[in-house]
Structures are given as C-alpha cells and as structure tokens.
Amino acid sequence: RRMHLVCPMNTSPHVDPQKSGHEVWEEFAHSFTPAVREVVEFAKKIPGFRDLSQHDQVSLLKAGTFEVLVVRFASLFDVKDRTITFLGGKKYSVDTLRAMGSSDLLNSMFDFSEKLTNLGLSEEEMSLFTAVVLVSAHRSGIENVNSVEALQETLIRALRSLITRNHPNESAIFTKLLLKLPDLRSLNNMHSEQLLAFKVH
C-alpha cells in the first residue's frame, strides 16, 4: 500500500513503503530539523528573548515553532496556482495532495497564507510579526508569565509603531495582523491532531 506524508516540511510527500515507521520518521525529522534550528536562531535575535529563563525560552519555542514556520514558509503556498512546494523543491497541486489523503489543515493553511500575503508586509514587518507570534504569555508551561507578557507587550508596541509608520492610511493592517494570532493557534491545534493521527497509524 502506498503511503504519504503530506507536510511541506518533508522532502516529498511520497514514503517508501519498504521503510519502517521509525525510518520514515527519522527521514522526516532530518528534513525539518534545519528549519527548526532557524526558528531557534531567529528567537535568539529577538531583543529580550535571551533574558527570559531557559525554561520559558524552551516552552515558547516548543509551543510556537509550528506557528512561526507557518508564517515563514507562507511563500511555499502558491495561492494562484493552488500548489505547495515541498522542502525537496518540487511542487504539488492541492488536488494531487488531496488524492494522497491530505486533510483540511492544508486548505486552512492555504487560506492563512493567502490572507497574510495579501497584507503585503515588508521583511522587517514580517520579522517583527513573527516575534509577536513566538512570544506569547498564553502558552502552556510558562513559569514567569509576567516577564513573557512584558516582552510580548514591547514587541506588539514595536509592531504597531512600525505598521503605523509604514502604512499611515491603512490602520486596519495592525488589527488584521493581531487577528492572525488566533488563526495560527487554531492551525497549531489542527496540526497537533494530525500528529496524533500520524502516530496512531
């Protein structure tokens, strides 16, 4: 029986049926590890992040890495052509991936990527928004909520200031960006359910 692992953080959606579950997982981990390391490197550059306790740094990264990756890799989703580019560099149409058993998660990620891309943010704005996504005091397991909250508020103020300066006639952009946070949380929850299904299989 042919198997597929429909995640763009994989090299390809095709899975060698001869390989064991462990081998498939190892290959997948090998594929997404560099992207996760990049998220950690990004976090280290957020002013104030390294001042948080090591426990909270790990907790924020554990909880938020998926959401940061969704923002950083929004460009892998070609809304016009309805294709997704996997890390191996090959593009797959939504219909092809659907036939491979992709879930509603990919469709939701398409919708998210489209709305985010339509905001037309600069690299600097995207970077600051990504920092806001990562530093959230509402993640589970945070031990010093006040410190994380203070950093989060500083980052949100900086984002508002940057957006207001760059888009003086589009005041709704900042609000739209903040509304992306619950969208990302919802995608994160759907992703966790997918992981559970993958593990069960």
């Binding site: 590890t33 950690v40 280290k44 090591q54 890495t65 966790s192 992981l195």
Partner: peptide, 27 residues
C-alpha cells in the same frame, strides 16, 4: 499526546540549538 513538540523530537532540537549558543558564549 498532550505534548506534540516532545513527540516530534522538537524539544531535543530546540534545547541543543539553545545550549550550543550558551557553550559558545562560555568559550
């Protein structure tokens, strides 16, 4: 399955990436 990050091996990757930097700073 309350902690998908740990199950993915993410925590290990994250800790190593964070610690690596600490070691560099200590050197």
């Amino acid at each position: 399955f309350s902690d998908p990050a740990s199950n993915l091996g993410l925590e290990d990757i994250i800790r190593k990436a964070l610690m690596g930097n600490l070691e560099e700073r200590q050197e």
